[in-house]
Design a protein around this nucleic acid. Structure first.
Length: 275
DNA sequence: CTCAGTGTTATAGC
DNA sequence: TGCTATAACACTGA
């Protein structure tokens, strides 16, 4: 479900609904959701107040007033919903945070891929997962000089390289396909074959796509809804993802779907040619 | 019944 | 050591 724009949309929804609220109880129904000791997680979180909610790439950062942060990754289908209605809790609700206003912040995840971890707020940059993240779109570090060497030292397919969160972070399978279509680069082009213009285009288009997707409230593909249950609109703006067999909006050639690095990959065989 | 699915990480092989 | 490819995670829906 979530790439960077969807996580950002979730972040904004959570801020408006749970920032400043005290967590009076924590229930973990799926033990593997928590990386680390589950009892310690519950003990450290219970009784704290949510001071703010941040984000680094696709990681949600729920900051608490005791100096700890819940690092939450939604992976494929994780989602939060806020509700006081007991019927909002089902067999896919794996963590339930009761708030001091009677509402519950419920973490749902059909595939159980998502993870939560407690970490010192002042030490987030040393967390194993966050530490390895490359620059993300719309951030100060997302520059030509930073990105060019990170991308071009690989000889793998450019699609695989852009999905590698240690090269640059935030883009996932949907938006990588969209970006590569927009910059007219074939997904199987070896990364070290790109030129400066390609790199510059990838940077500019990645920024633009992320900005547009966030403004649209994210893409609702399969299961995604924000913290208030609303769907995003970005899927209506997608040009190639899920569009196999339909005409390329630019040249009319049918969009093809292939496998690249094990992931479904959509592209226009005429607009996007391997160098 | 089979297969693909918005993501990350462990493991195997060269 | 380092890079790359593949499997695994767990479940639903087409």
């Amino acid at each position: 479900m979530p790439e960077m724009p969807e996580v950002e949309t979730v972040r904004r929804g959570l801020i408006s609904q749970v920032k400043g609220r005290k967590i009076t109880n924590v229930e973990i129904r799926y033990q593997n959701l928590i990386t680390g000791d589950v009892d310690q997680f519950k003990e450290f979180v219970t009784g704290t107040t949510i001071t703010d909610i941040g984000r680094r790439a696709k990681f949600l950062l729920i900051h608490l007033d005791n100096g700890y942060t819940i690092i939450s990754h939604l992976r494929m289908e994780g989602r939060y919903k806020i509700s006081a209605d007991p019927s909002a809790i089902d067999k896919h609700s794996h963590a339930i945070f009761t708030l001091d206003n009677g509402q519950k912040m419920i973490y749902n995840d059909v595939r159980k891929f998502g993870r939560m971890q407690l970490w010192n707020t002042d030490d987030l940059e040393n967390n194993k997962s966050i530490q390895k993240l490359g620059p993300e779109p719309l951030s100060a570090a997302f520059t030509f000089n930073n990105l060019k060497p990170r991308i071009m030292r690989h000889r793998k397919d450019i699609k695989t390289v852009l999905l590698d969160q240690s090269v640059m972070s935030g883009l996932g399978n949907i938006y990588v396909d969209e970006v590569l279509w927009k910059v007219k680069i074939h997904p199987e082009t070896p990364a070290d074959h790109l030129n400066d213009t390609d790199i510059q285009n990838i940077i500019e288009v990645s920024n633009g796509e992320m900005e547009k997707a966030i403004a649209s409230g994210g893409s609702t593909v399969r299961s995604y809804v924000d913290a208030t249950g609303h769907k995003g609109n970005m899927q209506n703006s997608l040009k190639v993802y899920g569009k196999e067999g339909t005409p390329c909006p630019r040249c009319g050639t049918d969009i093809e779907k292939i496998k690249v690095g094990g992931r479904g990959t959509h592209f226009c065989p005429k607009c996007q040619v391997i160098k």
